[in-house]
Structures are given as structure tokens and as C-alpha cells.
Simulated assay, not measured.
Amino acid sequence: MESTMGTQTRVAIITGSSRGIGQAIARRLAKDGFSVVVNYAGNAENARATVADIEATGGRAIAVQADVADEVAVAAMFDRAEREFGGIDVVVNSAGLMVLGTIADFNLADLDRMHRTNIRGTFVVTQQAARRVRSGGAILNVSTSAERQALPTYGAYAASKGAVEALNLILARELRGRDITVNTVAPGPVATDLFLDGKDAATVDRIAKLNPMERLGKPDDIAEVVSFLAGPARWINGQVIYANGGMN
């Protein structure tokens, strides 16, 4: 893809990008020529390491701490991106929290924590993105294929991501005339710490075989889809893209 709009370097903010899928997205967009804001909530060491990796390959990046649900901190992060790099072209909502449990027994405190990060956090970041992303840009959310699989114990998590998907086409239509696309990527199971936590080898193997590729996704698989939607895919708008190896 082209890494500039004319002579203007493109700029991306990726939330939750100190590890996992978000980190892979940050590295991929930097490889594509973006200047990257690596957002993190608490893991400053990982965020700095991600920035160092990007800079080691000739890219530009900064690490910015912000709780995605805190509108003041998020506005300050967008301010920082504009000061450092001159503007914002792509925003990827990758920060997320997953807690599993049956609906009947689910801890409501965990539900509130997921709501704060997955729903409020996505909304707060998207609100700033809708105000500030430049013409020709893209706003991208990360959801989950678990919503379509309807797997037991995923109810609360899938519900939080369903709310994220509900914003998708509405925002695309609200941004009519501004040449900004809005899309959501819905990964299947991906081999990240978030997914693997608490699962034994037999469970992981069973889930991996739910798709005809018979493997878990890799963070780079999802980053590749985001790269496409952030760059050349200007005629894809308001869509949910399922990146799951054919699981559903």
C-alpha cells in the first residue's frame, strides 16, 4: 500500500498494542509506513519494547499510556498524536478484556469491567476518532467470531463485542461525505495470552480444529486484515470481516 497521502505520512493509533493482536497490528502498520501510537493501559515495559522494535526497522512510534474508558486520557492521547505526527489517519480499537463464565453464574463485577473496557472504551476512543481522523482515513474495531459460534461461557464477552459491532454501520453512515471508512474485524481463536489463559492443551487443540485450517490464528493473521482495511480497501465500509480460517 501507499504509506503517504501525497507527501503526508500517515498516522495510526492502536489501542491495547503493547501485546497480542494489538502489538502485531502496530508492527504491521509501521511496516506499511505509518507513524504509530502504541497505546497501553499498564504494561509500559512491553509498550516501550514494541516501540523499540518498530524503530529498529526504521519506523516511527511513540508509546502513550491511557485507559481507553477515560475520556480525558484518550483526548490527551489524540492530542499527543497530533503534536508528534501532525494528524491522525487510522484508529484501531484493539484494547479488550475477556472473562468467561456461564450467564447464570457470571460475576457482575467482571461484567462491569468488561463493559468498561470493551464497550465504553471502544465508544470513547471511537468518539475522538470520529472527530479527528483525516479524510481518506479509517476507523477499525476488533470484535470476535465467538458471537456467531454461540459457545457456552462466552455470553458476557460476546455481548460486549456485539455492542461494538452495533456501532459499525451507524458510524459509517454518520461520517457520510468525509471519505472515512469504518469496519470491524472479528477474529476467531488466536494464539495470544488473552485466549490461552486458563485453557489446557486438549481444549486448545479442540478449538483449533473448529476451522478447516485446523490451527489457531496468529496475531499476524489479524494484522494482515487490518492492514488491508487501513490502506487500499476504500470500498469496504460498514462491514464486519470474520477472520477465523473458515470457522463459521
Rank of each mutant, 00 (worst) to 15 (best):
R134I: 07
I88M: 11
N168H: 06
D205P: 04
S143D: 09
V72H: 14
Y154T: 14
T117D: 03
I25F: 04
M98W: 12
I180A: 04
R83E: 15
L108K: 08
M77P: 05
A56Q: 14
G6R: 05
V99F: 13
G42Y: 01
R19L: 09
G87A: 11
G59K: 07
D53R: 13
G245H: 00
I119V: 15
A208L: 11
T153K: 07
L171K: 06
P219E: 01
E174M: 10
A56N: 14
A109C: 06
P232L: 02
A12W: 03
Q8I: 14
M114Q: 09
T126E: 06
K218R: 13
I139E: 03
R113C: 08
G58K: 12
D193K: 12
V51W: 07
D221W: 00
W235T: 00
A47D: 08
G137F: 01
A230C: 03
L167M: 15
E45P: 05
W235G: 00
V74R: 07
V51R: 03
V36Q: 03
D179F: 09
R120Q: 13
Y157M: 08
R178M: 07
G238Y: 00
T144K: 06
A26T: 04
A163W: 10
W235E: 01
E165D: 14
A163I: 08
D179W: 05
A130N: 04
T9Q: 14
A186S: 15
M114A: 03
T181Y: 06
Q65W: 02
S160F: 02
T7C: 05
N118G: 06
A41L: 10
V90Q: 09
A201K: 15
T184K: 05
D205F: 04
M213I: 13
A230Q: 00
R148Q: 14
A30E: 03
G87E: 12
F85K: 05
G58R: 11
D67C: 07
T9F: 04
E147L: 15
A202H: 07
G59H: 09
D205H: 12
R80I: 07
V64T: 08
